[in-house]
């Protein structure tokens, strides 16, 4: 296996045929009504006119993936540059749906739904279903360096016709695992120029969450130790009080032989 995989999608080649969508659904046995990826035709406003393009909505396999950061169950992890999904672990908490800057994951039938990178196929030496099926070779998959070089070469050629052509995802979020060959600026496709992991999420993840769990355990430990000491102290005092001044009520033996009470 390669160390760091990546996909690329060349929007100049995509013909919007939906073959990848169908291949992904069939290959991964995705429940009907659900899909890991979508391809839609979008009419966008450009200069003073209109302009159509295909929009691929699918996981970018971010290197520093916010979804992996928030996932509390270990369902989402990074494996060889891809954001892998271990469906059986998912709690359907939905944190990933809010953390992803691209609004990719969704929760369906009590588990997360997003591109799984076809890791089973890749580990078996095959290409992912979508890349394997694309009839116009718009979806590529392989070693990230190779895929990136290929995408850059394509952009260099495209620049003659499309001066704003560029590779999207070389550096964002530590480098995306899905590189998009765009004909126009990212904004035209509704893609954020600089997607970011939220600083508040970092604070929660690295500070609040471990502190909450840690301090709870610490408090339990400290109080457990103090209890042993306090209980002895109390027994001593109680014995003193009752030998010094036996109260009349102490004569009455009750099943609830409460020495002193506290609610």
């Amino acid at each position: 296996m390669a160390s760091r995989y990546a996909f690329s999608i060349d929007l100049d080649r995509c013909i919007g045929c939906q073959a990848c969508v169908v291949a992904c659904r069939t290959g991964n046995e995705v429940a009907s009504g659900d899909a890991y990826i979508t391809v839609s035709e979008e009419i966008r406003r450009k200069d003073n006119g209109f302009w159509g393009s295909f929009a691929h909505k699918r996981c970018f396999h971010c290197t520093e993936a916010p979804c992996v950061e928030v996932c509390p169950t270990g369902t989402l992890t990074k494996v060889n540059g891809l954001t892998a999904v271990d469906m059986a672990k998912c709690s359907a908490c939905g944190y990933c749906t809010q953390a992803c800057p691209f609004h990719i994951p969704h929760v369906v039938d009590n588990h997360v739904s997003k591109c799984v990178g076809c890791l089973d196929q890749v580990q078996a030496g095959e290409e992912p279903w979508c890349a394997r099926t694309c009839p116009s070779n718009a979806i590529r998959f392989g070693e990230r360096e190779v895929i990136l070089a290929e995408a850059k070469a394509k952009v260099a050629k495209l620049r003659e016709r499309y001066p704003n052509a560029q590779v999207y995802g070389e550096t964002q979020l530590g480098g995306l695992g899905l590189l998009m060959v765009l004909l126009e600026a990212p904004g035209v496709y509704g893609l954020p120029e600089a997607p970011q992991s939220s600083a508040t999420i970092q604070t929660w993840k690295t500070l609040v969450k471990p502190a909450s769990a840690g301090l709870t355990a610490l408090a339990a430990g400290v109080m457990g130790l103090a209890f042993v000491f306090a209980r002895r102290q109390h027994a001593k005092e109680h014995a003193e009080v009752h030998t010094a001044a036996p109260v009349e009520a102490a004569v009455v033996e009750t099943p609830a032989q409460t020495e002193e009470n506290h609610d």
């Binding site: 109080m223 209980r231 109390h234 009520a249 609830a256 032989q257 409460t258 002193e260 009470n261 506290h262």
Partner: peptide
């Protein structure tokens, strides 16, 4: 901690405490 330190559980089980304790 306080419940078990001062043996106060019956206040919430039977609902009763000793007069001794109350005083």
């Amino acid at each position: 901690y306080f419940t078990f330190l001062y043996g106060a559980l019956p206040a919430m089980t039977t609902g009763f405490v000793t007069e001794d304790y109350a005083r």
